[in-house]
Design a protein around this nucleic acid. Structure first.
Length: 275
DNA sequence: CCCCAGGTAGGCT
DNA sequence: AGCCTACATGGG
């Protein structure tokens, strides 16, 4: 699937890796299109994704970090074959539409901050707020700003977060950053999905949906199915018309897709949101 | 003026 | 436990 050549990762075919699908499916907010190349940022690191006719080349100083970040050891061909076995008309359409999606393995801290901002918000505004937070509290790198550390960002006050567009979420952010100072993320990684969700929803600004996004994108948990306005619309348009609340819809999908729930959710989200 | 955006907190049954 | 509504902000 991939090989390494000095400072580069080479993705040998484009069957299971499409930069646009990966970056524009709502799991990451720090990336940009520079000419024809996507540039992606994670914590204090940066990678450029160059598309060729039959392959991708990823340029970065942090090869091993981005091999893990893009989850290159996982066979998405198999995941898609397993999802096609559900023989669901709409999931099949969604997979064919976003066939190059991969779920990124991102920083739990960056996911917590980012998805608190995401609640009842729109993607351009979420991106803009996060960028301003990095510029104000992140370390200056060559030609970009790192995502702030917890120590750095917990110095920011409510007025700062309001000034970068968080609105009423500003006070949640201040309180959650203080709470995170007592958290050991390595211990959280050992928790069951159910117990990890219980811990996450104790954070201010984190409910079921945000917790599930944090677990899917930050803790590598695929047995969750975040329900937002788009995946709720998938349920109501393509499964059963409006007879359940968001928690019940999430339970329905997880019972149905089990340990493939997170993958199914991401194909369906991208399909419904982009079409 | 309205409605919407990767929903949640707090208050009410 | 489950339902209801206010909530900053900017864009269509």
């Amino acid at each position: 699937m991939y090989k390494i050549d000095k400072q580069k990762i080479i993705i040998e075919n484009k069957n299971d890796f499409i930069a646009k699908h990966i970056l524009e499916c709502g799991q990451i907010f720090r990336y940009e299109l520079q000419n024809n190349d996507y540039v992606v940022y994670s914590l204090d690191k940066k990678a450029k994704i160059i598309e060729n006719e039959n392959c991708y080349i990823i340029e970065t100083k942090d090869i091993n970090y981005f091999i893990d970040f893009f989850d290159l050891a996982t066979d998405y061909g198999k995941i898609k074959r397993d999802l096609f076995k559900f023989n669901n008309e709409f999931l099949n359409k969604a997979i064919n539409f976003g066939y190059g999606i991969r779920i990124l393995k991102q920083s739990p801290f960056e996911m917590i901050v980012s998805f608190i901002i995401s609640a009842n918000n729109n993607i351009p505004r979420i991106k803009a707020s996060i960028k301003k937070i990095c510029e104000a509290y992140g370390e200056k790198m060559d030609d970009y700003y790192a995502f702030p550390t917890l120590d750095a960002l917990s110095c920011a006050d409510e007025n700062f977060f309001k000034s970068v567009g968080l609105g009423y979420r500003a006070s949640y952010m201040v309180e959650t950053l203080q709470m995170l100072k007592t958290v050991d993320f390595d211990k959280w990684r050992e928790l069951s999905t159910e117990n990890l969700r219980k811990e996450l929803v104790k954070l201010k600004g984190v409910g079921r949906k945000v917790a599930d996004c944090i677990m899917l994108f930050g803790f590598n948990r695929a047995e969750v199915f975040p329900i937002d306005t788009w995946t709720k619309k998938v349920y109501e348009d393509n499964f059963f018309a409006g007879d359940k609340n968001n928690n019940q819809i999430a339970t329905y999908f997880v019972d149905y897709f089990r340990d493939l729930s997170g993958y199914a959710q991401q194909y369906l989200y991208y399909w419904k949101q982009k079409l």
